[in-house]
Design a protein around this nucleic acid. Structure first.
Length: 295
DNA sequence: CCGCGGGCCTGAGAGC
DNA sequence: TGCTCTCAGGCCCGCG
């Protein structure tokens, strides 16, 4: 089983791991080793952050959002391969702790935050699809990266009526609609596959078929919303236990093992029926599903 | 406006 | 063993 690219549950797990060392602490210094992430960092990125206290660390969809005392908000996205390493007490780190223990830096350690409590938080991202962006808090409500996002799937406002309305009239597949962050924010390829499986809905079904002519939700929409919430809750719970079990071991946040029911299980038996899990490609990406119990 | 495909990057794994 | 090839879970952008 492969490790997970960060979707909503992984980002939430990372947030929970970072919060204890970042919230309430001051960022003494920022090292930018490579600023050419998804977009180039602002030239004054490090200077603008240095000296600020992290008043809170939140999450919106797959973005981590650090509220800084300087008046800026730091948006961080893990992309496909991003992760964070924490060294609790960098100055007294033991030789085996991590690259930084001896002042060494890992191959793709691009940004290092030195905290006033002695901790070091390092952003590592081999593919550099991740990103960081500083935005004045007063302008956050105009931030284009956030403005287009749909509802948080675990929020109370996300329900069958809302999902059906967003899918009504959509010609595209249900799979593609759920991957669209404007419809619902935070799902990726894995959890879309898993949620559709649990809802017994085919990924090939036209998105509009979870709503009636007027855009009102049907039973499929109800089942789908329920499955999305359950799948995400389960994964966050698994992330929590991975934090407790493994964080001390190597300090990495952003990857933890999962067992999926259909994802990456082409050819294996369906856990639910006598069918065989199939892989198809939809708009260039893999979809895993059971053709006999997902209709 | 909508839907689709290309491109950004590197590393892991398969196949020769 | 070592090389080459394909593929990867995200996201933005431009095209028709």
């Amino acid at each position: 089983m492969r490790c997970g690219v960060p979707e909503l549950p992984e980002v939430e797990t990372v947030r929970r791991g970072l919060a204890p060392v970042m919230e309430g602490a001051r960022i003494v210094k920022v090292e930018v080793r490579r600023g050419d992430l998804r977009w180039p960092l602002a030239k004054d990125f490090a200077k603008r952050i240095a000296g600020a206290t992290v008043d809170g660390l939140g999450r919106r969809a797959k973005y981590l959002i650090a509220d800084l005392s300087s008046g800026d908000v730091l948006m961080m996205h893990l992309g496909m391969s991003g992760s964070f390493h924490i060294i609790q007490d960098a100055k007294n780190a033991r030789p085996g702790d991590f690259h930084h223990a001896r002042g060494k830096i890992g191959a793709h350690d691009h940004i290092v935050f030195h905290m006033s409590n002695g901790a070091t938080v390092t952003f590592n991202d081999p593919r550099r699809f991740g990103s960081m962006k500083l935005v004045p808090r007063s302008k956050l409500d105009k931030e284009p990266l956030l403005n287009a996002l749909g509802p948080e799937p675990l929020g109370n406002e996300f329900d069958a009526a809302m999902l059906a309305k967003a899918c009504a009239g959509k010609k595209t597949s249900l799979k593609a609609a759920l991957l669209d962050q404007r419809v619902v924010a935070g799902l990726g390829n894995i959890y879309v596959c898993e949620a559709l499986y649990r809802a017994h809905l085919s990924p090939k079904r036209q998105a509009s078929t979870i709503a009636d002519r007027k855009g009102a939700p049907n039973q499929r929409a109800v089942a789908l919303v329920d499955s999305i919430k359950v799948v995400l809750h389960d994964a966050i719970k698994a992330g929590g236990s991975s934090l407790r079990d493994h964080r001390q071991a190597d300090g990495t946040l952003g990857y933890f093992q999962h067992s999926f029911r259909v994802y990456d299980r082409e050819g294996e038996p369906c856990p639910n029926c006598k069918g065989t899990i199939k892989r198809i490609v939809q708009s260039g990406r893999s979809t895993f599903y059971c053709p006999s119990c997902q209709k």
